[in-house]
Amino acid sequence: MEEARAIAIVSALANGVNPSTGEIFPGDSPYQSADVVRALFLVTRLLEARPTKARERPATPGNAGKPWTADED
């Protein structure tokens, strides 16, 4: 599953909407509980703030991690 789709699903749940049907959950649904809604919004923000794979690891020189030669030492 792509991250964008996962974010859309969690965001819909946080907003009290069934992501499959678009219907609003009833008031007694667990997705309408204050703590659950807060947790879902927190997860949504954390997912959106995650760095992309290209930014996760800075570019390193091609010889990074290799032992030094006698000349370099």
Rank of each mutant, 00 (worst) to 15 (best):
N63F: 14
L46N: 11
F41P: 00
R45L: 11
G27K: 12
T44C: 04
L40M: 08
A70N: 02
A34V: 13
P19R: 14
I7A: 04
R38T: 07
K66A: 14
A12E: 13
N18P: 13
P58D: 05
D28E: 15
S33R: 14
A34M: 10
A4G: 08
A8Q: 13
L40D: 02
F25D: 03
F25Y: 15
A49G: 14
K53W: 06
E56N: 02
A8N: 14
A54L: 10
V43D: 04
T44I: 03
L47P: 00
N15S: 09
T44P: 00
P19H: 15
A12N: 13
N15T: 04
L46K: 11
D71K: 02
P30T: 08
V43R: 13
P19Y: 14
T21A: 11
L46R: 15
A12D: 15
G62H: 07
I24Q: 06
L42I: 05
P19L: 14
V36F: 06
E72T: 03
F41C: 03
R5D: 05
L42C: 05
V37I: 14
V17C: 06
A59Y: 13
D71T: 03
S29H: 10
A64D: 15
A6N: 07
L40F: 03
A64L: 10
P51A: 06
T21R: 12
V17P: 04
V10F: 08
T21G: 13
V37Y: 06
E56H: 08
G16H: 01
T52L: 06
D73Y: 14
I9H: 04
R5Y: 09
L40C: 03
S11M: 00
Y31C: 01
L42A: 04
P51H: 06
A70Y: 01
F25V: 04
P26I: 02
V37S: 04
K66T: 11
T21H: 13
T21L: 08
E48G: 11
N18C: 09
G22D: 10
K66W: 13
V10H: 02
K66H: 14
A70C: 02
G16W: 01
K53H: 07
T21P: 12
S33C: 09
